[in-house]
């Protein structure tokens, strides 16, 4: 396989794509939002439980490709414990990385989310990785409507 593809489909991504973490309905959620990518039909429903301006728990459901499922899985793991402000800031850094705008310093801050750096070589797949993050922003703003990446 081409090295760029190996970079995109890293083992961590394949693992989260096949066995997503936090893949469930969250009881007692305080925030939720739905994301939809009309281009490929990916759908995600994100539930958050926010306590004292911190994300106490996060879970998702939906259907999508390996990239979008892994992104949702790893995002829900990563944002737990973050303040709302930190979560928004993380969105910005993740967005910069997958769209190829990040400097190295920023990418270093992403920890295990760095595995998504390979997405920037695949412009058609950026939306797959970013969908759940847009859904996160929408949930935090308590917008009731479905977000779309289009």
């Amino acid at each position: 396989m081409r090295p760029e593809l190996r970079e995109l489909y890293q083992d961590v991504i394949l693992d989260h794509g096949k066995r997503p973490r936090n893949f469930r309905r969250l009881e007692g959620a305080t925030h939720h939002a739905e994301g939809f990518n009309p281009l490929c039909g990916d759908r995600v429903r994100l539930d958050l439980r926010v306590e004292d301006d911190r994300i106490a728990d996060a879970a998702f459901q939906g259907q999508g490709c390996a990239i979008s499922t892994a992104s949702a899985s790893m995002m829900t793991e990563t944002v737990k414990g973050l303040s709302l402000e930190e979560a928004r800031e993380l969105f910005q850094r993740f967005h910069s990385q997958v769209t190829g705008q990040a400097g190295n310093a920023e990418a270093d801050d992403l920890g295990k989310l760095e595995v998504f750096a390979g997405v920037q070589e695949y412009p058609a797949r950026v939306k797959c990785a970013i969908l759940v993050w847009h859904t996160l922003l929408s949930a935090l703003e308590k917008k009731p409507e479905t977000v779309s990446t289009e």
Binding site: L5, C40, G41, A66, I67
Partner: peptide, 27 residues
């Protein structure tokens, strides 16, 4: 079964194979 069409399309593209994945405007 178990593999999303978009992942298939991306990997086949790496083999020089151009085909379509999606709903083909027929939802």
């Amino acid at each position: 079964e178990g593999i999303h069409p978009h992942d298939i399309g991306t990997i086949l593209d790496g083999e020089g194979i151009a085909l379509r994945t999606g709903h083909h405007c027929t939802q």
